[in-house]
């Protein structure tokens, strides 16, 4: 399994330091295709910081983060933007757009690409909702009328609408 092709996230010798406080000390981590990994730790232990570094939102003090073989922190904004199309982000509270219906929330990342016809987007959204166990009857509902669990599922459907890779926090 230890092949470069299968390795989606590759963190090498990562150091994160805020002033005198060292959050990550020479961290090495690999996440492979199809693998589900959870980061567990106390408050302030650097879980969210590590996720932000994996997404290219924060720079580590030292070390390298590579996603799909591309270094996130080598200063190429175009490459980073292209790379961001390869993953979806699932937020803790779902972060659905309250003014959009369930369908429109999941369709949004697909419509943003401007690559697919509306018919295909419709069927893709329904498929994604089905994958997360949301019945099609809920597609026209607003997020305010959904339970917390449903919001989370719909947020997951939106995160994997473009790609099968989801990062959650």
């Amino acid at each position: 399994m230890d092949t470069t092709d299968d390795c989606v996230i590759d963190i090498r010798n990562l150091w994160t330091q805020f002033g005198a406080q060292v959050v990550h000390r020479d961290l090495n981590l690999r996440v492979y295709r199809g693998e589900v990994m959870s980061l567990v730790g106390g408050p302030g232990s650097g879980k969210s910081t590590l996720l932000r570094e994996m997404l290219g939102l924060e720079h580590p003090t030292r070390g390298e983060v590579r996603v799909f073989g591309v270094s996130l922190h080598d200063g190429d904004p175009v490459a980073l933007r292209q790379l961001r199309d390869c993953w979806g982000m699932l937020f803790q509270e779902g972060a659905l757009f309250s003014a959009l219906t369930v369908f429109e929330n999941v369709a949004l990342p697909l419509r943003e690409m401007k690559a697919l016809d509306e018919d295909i987007i419709h069927d893709l959204v329904m498929l994604k909702l089905d994958m997360v166990g949301i019945e099609r009857g809920h597609a026209s509902k607003m997020p305010s009328s959904l339970s917390g669990g449903m919001v989370k599922r719909i947020a997951l459907a939106r995160a994997v609408a473009r790609t099968g890779v989801a990062v959650s926090r």
Partner: peptide, 11 residues
């Protein structure tokens, strides 16, 4: 999947 069934309409 459910794609060929009813179509979504907002309002």
């Amino acid at each position: 999947g459910p794609t060929v069934a009813s179509r979504y309409k907002r309002q």
